[in-house]
Nucleic acid binder design. Structure first.
Lengths: 141, 141
DNA sequence: TATTGTTATACTCTATAACTATA
DNA sequence: TATAGTTATAGAGTATAACAATA
């Protein structure tokens, strides 16, 4: 207990702690990704489609839990920035694929997120570290 | 690994898992608190000031990490609903105090959050459960 | 009929800048 | 000068409803 959580009576509640931890951690990640002008959701999409040439907007949204309506401005931004392109699958569907520029950017994204993940785990006391990911896996469908 | 995280290659990243877990869990809590017409931030404030008659808006914001500008509409809502009142400390500061009605509502809030916290912990595999809170405590200041 | 992708829209959350009044 | 509280505003994130075109 190196920190000031004693001053916050709510810090004993797992739900509250989850909210505070996620909020602080995601603000940190967002700031790091700002260096490559990406949002967290943008980076998630780029990482998800890294080796794929066949994922549609709908599929991406299903996996990442983004509404399809919200995929539209997200993908438009990435396309406008030259990171992805839309490749027709049939007359109804489009595959979302990394461009060469997107591939290069992904190298930077990998570097940023790898460092971020290492530092995140590093802030968790060693005795609890290995339990963190399996615990979280219970908390979303 | 009872769930579908195998289909999501990002699920191995602790940061991503933290984001997904917090998002799903907080959506659940928000829905439960909707029954008493409170937001998560509202309920946090009520729980924080439960036994206090001397906390100012600024102090509350510092503990819960809400900007003071964002405290204004939050407290206005709670005051309008009759859950809190403002008691002058001096000509500059106001104490934020539960009304009788706020005290009664807090009983319901405690019931909702207690059940929520139990179910949250229940979704974490037993072997990892005790490590969850101490791990989170490393992740915010 | 169901699905893909889209448009428009609205609500919540959070952050910043600028201001008043008081300590 | 520093602090408490406020106003206005903007950027994100997220949700719903309605729609066109195609499977």
């Amino acid at each position: 207990m190196s920190n000031d959580h004693a001053k916050d009576p709510l810090a004993r509640l797992p739900g509250y702690a989850l909210r505070r931890a996620a909020s602080a951690t995601m603000a940190d990640l967002a700031a790091r990704l700002h260096a490559v002008e990406l949002r967290i959701s943008d980076a998630s999409v780029l990482m998800l489609i890294r080796d794929r040439v066949d994922m549609t907007s709908t599929e991406i949204g299903k996996i990442l839990d983004f509404q399809s309506a919200n995929m539209v401005p997200l993908l438009s931004r990435l396309e406008l920035a030259g990171h992805i392109k839309r490749v027709p699958i049939n007359r109804k569907s489009m595959a979302i694929v990394l461009t060469d520029r997107g591939q290069e950017l992904l190298i930077q994204v990998d570097s940023i997120t790898a460092r971020f993940e290492v530092e995140l785990l590093g802030r968790i006391p060693e005795a609890h570290r290995a339990h963190f990911l399996p615990a979280l896996h219970g908390l979303w469908p």
